[in-house]
Amino acid sequence: MPEVTMTVNGQEASGDVEGRTLLVQFLREHLRLTGTHVGCDTSQCGACVVHVNGQSVKSCTMLAVQADGSAVTTIEGLASGNELHPMQAAFHENHALQCGFCTPGMVMSAVDLLQKNSSPSETEIREWLEGNLCRCTGYKNIVKAIQHAAAGDAA
């Protein structure tokens, strides 16, 4: 059984996995980091988005062994202690969630967008969120929150 070692949210994590173990399974079931969700399991919905080496990916469509040696950031790794990440704060302040299931993936995807483009237009935000689905259809406030985070309006 392959052993994988990766840095998850700044800490080294390792474990024995099967070749077929998905990265999201390793995060949720081995490391008990259940903030990363599985929505569709078919690469469509984006609830499982995490960062691997700084880039947003769908962790349901990546094997744990593919992330061996990588640096992974999950939703649990964004806040500093009790202080929310500016994107989390912006989602909170703008009520950018309804049921909240898609939120971890939305936040991780949005953080990656601002890494690439610090002042995206509304169109660019909506195009970027192509791979993140909100079944509550709460996109309006999600887009607003990302605009506020980009403008530095979040607390």
Binding site: T61, E130, G131
Partner: peptide, 9 residues
């Protein structure tokens, strides 16, 4: 092609 996360991989 696809969406940003698909294009990353």
């Amino acid at each position: 092609i696809g969406d940003p996360q698909v294009r990353h991989r």
